[in-house]
Every structure is written in C-alpha cells, then in structure tokens.
C-alpha cells in the first residue's frame, strides 16, 4: 500500500517501543545485531563515526560544487 510519508526507521522502532513490553519484544526479535547497535556504546560510537564520515563527504561535495 502506498504511504506518502517517509517511513522514518527510527520512528517506526520508537512507535513499536511505545506499544509497551510486547512491542519491545518485537524490536528484540528484529535481530541481535540491531539490538546491540541500539544499546551498546561501542556500536553507538561506530554509528556516530559513520554518520560523521557521511556528513564530511556531503560537505566536500557541496564545497566541490561551489568551486
């Protein structure tokens, strides 16, 4: 079915969590690696670095366009 709003992945997880324990259980069932990524500091750092690298790349693109 067509949905015109962006399916923001974080918000979908958040709405599952908002359903209470049963919803949280479903989030856990999504897979161990994702759950770890959500809670572990090490994975959080990795995700942050990945995001920073991505934004640097975008900045470089913009700078490249400007010159």
């Amino acid at each position: 079915m067509f949905a015109y709003l962006d399916a923001n992945s974080g918000s979908l997880i958040a709405s599952a969590i908002a359903a209470g324990f049963a919803g949280i259980a479903v989030v856990f069932k999504l897979g161990w690696s994702r759950t770890v990524a959500f809670f572990s500091p090490k994975h959080r750092r990795a995700a942050k670095e990945a995001m920073a690298a991505q934004s640097l790349a975008t900045d470089a693109d913009v700078a490249g366009d400007a010159t």
């Binding site: 399916a7 923001n8 974080g10 918000s11 979908l12 958040a14 994702r34 990524a37 959500f38 995700a47």
Partner: peptide, 20 residues
C-alpha cells in the same frame, strides 16, 4: 527513546517496516 532510535537506526524505513 524516539530520539535515540532516530539517531541509531540507519536502515531504510520501508525495510524496517517489513521486518517489524
């Protein structure tokens, strides 16, 4: 929790919806 999920879940929304 909503904000944490937003910053940590980077996979596409449609895929997450299907997986959920």
């Amino acid at each position: 929790l909503h904000s944490i999920a937003e910053s940590r879940v980077t996979q596409g929304g449609q895929a997450i919806k299907e997986d959920l």
